[in-house]
Nucleic acid binder design. Sequence first.
DNA 1: GCCGCTAAATTTGTAGGACAAAAGCCGGAG
DNA 2: CTCCGGCTTTTGTCCTACAAATTTAGCGGC
Lengths: 250, 250
Amino acid sequence: MGHTGQRRRKPARGPQRKPGSRVHSELAAGIGRRILDGTYQPGSLLPNEAEWGEIFGASRTAVREAIKTLNGKGLLVSRPKIGSRVEPRERWNLLDRDVMAWHRAALDERTFLLSLQEIRRILEPGAAVLAAQRRSPQQLAALEKALADMQSAVARSEAMVAADVRFHLALLAAANNELLAPFGIVIEQALASMFAYTTSHAVHPEQMLPLHARVVKAIAARAPEAARKAMTELLDDTDETLGAAAGAQA
Amino acid sequence: MGHTGQRRRKPARGPQRKPGSRVHSELAAGIGRRILDGTYQPGSLLPNEAEWGEIFGASRTAVREAIKTLNGKGLLVSRPKIGSRVEPRERWNLLDRDVMAWHRAALDERTFLLSLQEIRRILEPGAAVLAAQRRSPQQLAALEKALADMQSAVARSEAMVAADVRFHLALLAAANNELLAPFGIVIEQALASMFAYTTSHAVHPEQMLPLHARVVKAIAARAPEAARKAMTELLDDTDETLGAAAGAQA
DNA sequence: GCCGCTAAATTTGTAGGACAAAAGCCGGAG
DNA sequence: CTCCGGCTTTTGTCCTACAAATTTAGCGGC
């Protein structure tokens, strides 16, 4: 990499910066993506801090802060004289927002979406049971509000997706177990990804809305098994839509 | 390469520091604990970097690295002129090893354990279904190995718990959906916590082992519903043990 | 030759100082 | 009163220097 010349660069690079996109954030994203896409395999050594600095034209300080961020997400560990080593995949916090986003970028949309839906099918019926047993009046109201928003947004796809996300997050919250919260990112990503994937294809709210309504009804009635059944059927319907879109795309 | 002589040396190690016990790690733990235990509520502002430096007697550099780590775990966000603000709980990566540990320290053992077990009852039966459908021969072997270890460790409690953990982690792995991996920490913490909680109370391996064996058998036979049922009964038994211990402690 | 100890080299960890950038605060001009 | 610009606080970045950890190499003693 021997290059001659001064080390000052980056004259260009518009001043417009997104809220959380300081230099170290971009570094974290740059390195994180390279880990998620397999450029650096688990167990392998990353370039040292000085090299990252050259690659990105940033100071060692910024590199170190980026690495500490990735450290916090379980992607790597650093040790003196050794360097930073990529952790085995099972240590990665895949449910972290950023990690999930990098992961999504590294997979094809369909594979990514299927793995998300699989998790939803395991968790959401269980969450529905807990919600039916323990939801507070406020939590029920939030659920009903989200449902109403979905109904009034039938025509506008984006608002519909947003309300749908709120619905499922409200359900998770109503289960009153905060260990379920990290899983909210799965729902957000799944619905966003599904929106991208099935757009221009058949999405039939006329079928989807009653299914959501049944979930709310069961939770309102504090009927755990009915809630589980309704949620399961909702997810069945979702997967059918997905399957149809896959067929149409192929 | 050429010759591989054995270079075993350094039998004695002095301080024997744990891998992550540098200054900034301790800072991260100190700050993280204060967030998890409610000293700093979501939405509130933390002391600025200079103040943390005084509190812990560390440089601003170390403080910043600690804060970047917590940033990566979703506990807080920092902005110039504003400071570092604690994120709402639903953004926290509760499934992160460190966050989970701080969370555990901030709750009473029983409450913590119940919330973990609740998650296990939702997830593990579903994971067992997937494992029965998709486990590879190697993954089945790992499961059988863990079961054998449990059987041969009946007398030694600690080895028993370790094998138990390996068993459930192997089951998660056999489900072949890496989004399940982050939940491994739930299992580890639940079993560790249960060991601490029920120690000196009745743990009946004579009942527990056949239940584990049934799970393996169903997965070996690629029988998803049998696997689900066996896993559910295993968890029922676990919760019974827990309930008995609770009664004894009260 | 082989062993054990020591020194060197490499990479991260910590310290501290300087300045840039962001964003709320406030006062003055119109 | 409103708007604009400077003031101020706090994080963000860069730099330099050194400490700590740990592998590698070398050197002397047996």
